[in-house]
Amino acid sequence: MNVTIVDYQSGNISSVINSFTEVAKGKVNLEVTSDIKKIKSSDKIVLPGQGSFKSCVDSLNKINGLVDTLKDFAIINKKPLLGICVGLQMFADIGYEEAETKGLSWIPGKVSKIDNQNGKFKLPHIGWNEIEIQKESKIFKDIKNKSHMYFVHSYEFIPEDKSVISATTDYSSKIVCSIERDNLFGTQFHPEKSDKIGLKIIENFIKLK
């Protein structure tokens, strides 16, 4: 089995690589690449994302053929893809960070700034927060409801179809922190930084049939 972490020159993906390397040890072959051929032939894809929505989308678009390849993989062929943080946010139609920017339009919805209720809630939302599981998800196997995950973000994904939401977290309002539709997965939190419980989520993704 080949798992590919898409390296599209956006932000710091060292932690994603370290955690997946730890979990993948002796189980699967892990590649970190932006090579279209390798991405096409892999069994699973991880799409990380740090920095702003706009900078991530711009970086994806810079690599010729990458967006179409990802779409063929995850949407047309419905092979497993996990988006992390801005990697998840980019599934949306549109994002408002820095400037209004078109997303991948894989899941109808938008990415807006978290309502901090006039400064009552500090932004970014940084730290450990509990997830409230909303529906059974393949990547939450053996993950207890109200487990703590590590978050760092100021924007939230608001999908139109609420049935894709697999978990929320409470910060000023119920923020969508995990989605699942077919084989498309996304987490707003960082499983790669969420201690052993986060590694378990990564393992669940890697072990997906």
Partner: peptide, 8 residues
Amino acid sequence: TAKECFVP
């Protein structure tokens, strides 16, 4: 450290 610690 980053290879062994999976917290920020």
